[in-house]
Write a protein that binds this DNA or RNA. Structure first.
Length: 402
DNA sequence: TCTGGGGTCCTAGGACCC
DNA sequence: TCTGGGGTCCTAGGACCC
């Protein structure tokens, strides 16, 4: 049976949501109507564009470029800081409205959802549902969305990306040649800036060119990725709307330092702070990790990462930090200037599943109890209050994820 | 000029075992 | 002396997404 899929994409999400919040706070200006961007903090060396208004776009400003570049293109650009608490609030408002249409919703990112409407059309058409959602979000929530209407996720996502903002587009199978094959390959989902020049060298310039390229040629050159892009170019996507909440496969925290650091003790202190955040989130998910990974970026943007399997799965701050410290010392070249340091845990498993098969010794139990007590205090009093001795000032510098 | 942070998935080479 | 493969696990790095 043919599936009925919608993709809902918030237009300039961070900027629109900031605009709505500002208007609610009594602001006289709507930053969606002027050249404006949501940007990081240049003084913290995270000065990139996170979202832009249509007027900012007219100046040629692009998402992810530096604020410096944005200012060069438009000296009068208005810059507003990001605020993820607000974004979460509006993201949830959108989700709750969409729940009135189907409970089969996949939250693809903070500002994108897939809806499986297959058994929820009620004598209406998919296109009408899409139009209704578009209208209701605008009227009831105050921001606009694009809606893609199709028979699978890939085509719905491509459709919602056509012309913006505040539009509803269909991309049914018979529309693929006219609406999708005419587009440059860079527009196809999962074709990034490294793949585009390789395809250009093969004289593949449009999605249509890609669709007509022999499948086995692409597999030979790109492996699995080659098969996937051939299928996408032909509008083939069998993946389901994953509406059940998914457990994370890994959890990480990283920070760009306000200044480069070449002192290993300092790096270790920051690594401990990162470990505490990561293990806190890990325990909140009721999961244990099997792999610890440390990432470093040098002043000249050279990235290295080392990872190591643990003897047994754990969420203990002490155990994970011990391994992380070992990795850091193993990979850090004395004297090199470090710009970014990151910690992630991978190969996560459910805590309960592990407990059945595990005997715990007293030493670990004591450490677990300590970690859990700290977690409870963090819940109660906030994140920055409970810190280990000697790194109070560090916590101020690190943005914590809740 | 100055270049975030959080993810997922894939590949390739080496180690090790049968 | 000179010669195997196949399978799995581990690790580093890369590509892509928002």
């Amino acid at each position: 049976m043919e599936r009925q899929i919608l993709h809902v994409d918030v237009n300039n999400a961070f900027l629109s949501w900031t605009a709505v919040e500002m208007l609610k706070e009594g602001s006289k200006i709507d930053i969606r109507q002027i050249p404006a961007i949501i940007g990081g903090d240049e003084s913290k060396r995270s000065g990139i564009v996170l979202a832009k208004s249509p007027k900012a776009k007219e100046f040629g400003i692009k998402t992810a470029e530096t604020i410096y570049q944005a200012k060069m293109k438009c000296p009068n650009i208005q810059i507003y800081p990001s605020n993820f608490t607000i974004y979460k609030k509006y993201s949830n408002q959108l989700y709750n409205l969409l729940l009135e249409y189907t409970d089969k919703i996949e939250r693809f990112s903070i500002d994108e959802c897939f809806l499986d409407m297959t058994h929820y059309l009620m004598n209406d058409t998919l296109l009408n549902k899409g139009k209704e959602i578009n209208k209701r979000v605008k009227e009831e929530l105050g921001f606009t969305v694009n809606v893609g209407v199709a028979h699978n996720k890939l085509l719905a996502k491509m459709a919602s990306d056509f012309t913006k903002p505040d539009r509803v587009h269909t991309l049914f199978e018979d529309e693929i040649p006219t609406k999708m094959w005419t587009l440059p390959i860079s527009e196809l989902f999962m074709i990034g800036k490294k793949t585009v020049p390789k395809l250009y060298n093969m004289q593949i310039k449009t999605i249509g060119d890609l669709a007509k390229t022999p499948q086995n040629l692409l597999i030979k050159k790109f492996g699995k990725h080659g098969l996937m892009m051939w299928e996408y170019a032909n509008g083939i996507d069998k993946s389901e709307v994953e509406y059940k909440p998914q457990k994370p496969k890994g959890i990480g925290n990283s920070i760009t330092l306000s200044q480069n650091i070449s002192n290993i003790e300092k790096l270790e202190e920051i690594l401990l702070a990162l470990t505490e955040q990561v293990t806190y989130r890990l325990r909140k998910e009721k999961m244990l990790a099997n792999v610890v990974n440390v990432q470093l970026r040098t002043h000249d943007f050279k990235d290295t990462s080392h990872q190591k399997k643990l003897a047994s799965s754990t969420s203990s701050t002490k155990e994970i930090y011990a391994k992380a410290k070992e990795l850091l010392n193993q990979m850090y070249i004395r004297g090199s200037q470090i710009r970014l340091i990151g910690l992630r845990v991978d190969n996560l498993v459910d805590e309960e599943q592990m407990q059945i098969s595990l005997f715990t010794d007293n030493k670990n139990e004591k450490q677990e109890k300590l970690d859990k007590t700290i977690d409870k205090l963090k819940e109660k009093y906030g994140y920055n209050l409970i810190t280990r001795a000697g790194k109070m000032e560090l916590d101020d510098k690190i943005k914590f994820k809740k």
